[in-house]
Amino acid sequence: MTALEQTARPAALARRRPGGRKRAGGRSAMSYGFIALYTALTVAFGIVPALYALYLSLTDADGGFAGLANFTKVVGDFRFLPAVGHVAYFLVLWLIALVVLVTVLAIAVHAIRLRWLGSGLRLIFYLPGALAGASSVLLWLFLLDPTASPVGGLLRFLGLSSFVEVIVPGHLPLIFAIIAFWTGAGGWIVIMYGALNNISAEVIEAARIDGAGPVQIAWRIQLPMLRKWISYMGIMSLAAGTQLFVEPQLLSQASNAIVPNDYSLNQLAYQYAFQQNDFNGAAAISLLLLVIALALSAVFVLRGGLFETD
């Protein structure tokens, strides 16, 4: 769930291919050579693992057909529903924060006239994206420990005087949402900023002549034009958020298991594979997560119109 991965992807969004269709050439032998290695990697690390997980999820440990038994087992696991709840709660907080704050910040930064200030702010918002994965979680462990934290005063003001008090289970979705927002928001702000630049100056000027103030321009022109980017951000973040793993995993380790090691769905799948040696159960959970991700992505690719598939 690193910021860069998510934010890098729209790099090529919405490009239109200039020319029309090309002549069908007799150059296909060479083409197969060019795509051979990539196709092999796609098969080996995209298609085969997905099919193998499907196979494992439908069989038992001895390889016999098990129907949906693995799925009923993992869904019935006493840890499954709580994990779904944790991830869902985290997602709600994170998605709301992303949609509201990223849009507001992008519009605010876009309204700044001073070039150096605007680009400086974008760099500042974007820089935490370099700290992905374990590094950003570790940094936030420091920040959340009132004894060492630079905002220890703020934490104590909120009535939190020790690390253990900070990371009580009820706070975790908020904490994970803050960490994810801190690392990921900047990349999206840069993208929204780019999209705002795309709105023609004439449209804005016309609205202004008609008497629209900056707030009305933001609400009636900029926001509607950002809509597809916002939905893209929401869908990608939803897919990434369901995968929650490294944040609770490290926090569990740092807290002496006050945070359970089966807090999220991916952690539960990991527990199945590595603690219980139940690869079929692990496959069932990862398949559920994979299907969610694939469905979100496929809907977006085939219906969203943001990507060029000629």
């Binding site: 991965e5 693992p49 995968q243 692990a282 992505s297």
Partner: peptide
């Protein structure tokens, strides 16, 4: 070609963690 292109897009948009455990099992 088009199949490979669409497959590329779809896999590109799923979080890369989604395939980790399946690849591990493989």
């Amino acid at each position: 070609r088009r199949l490979l292109l669409i497959l590329t897009l779809i896999v590109m948009l799923i979080p890369n963690t989604a395939l980790v455990l399946p690849i591990f099992l493989e």
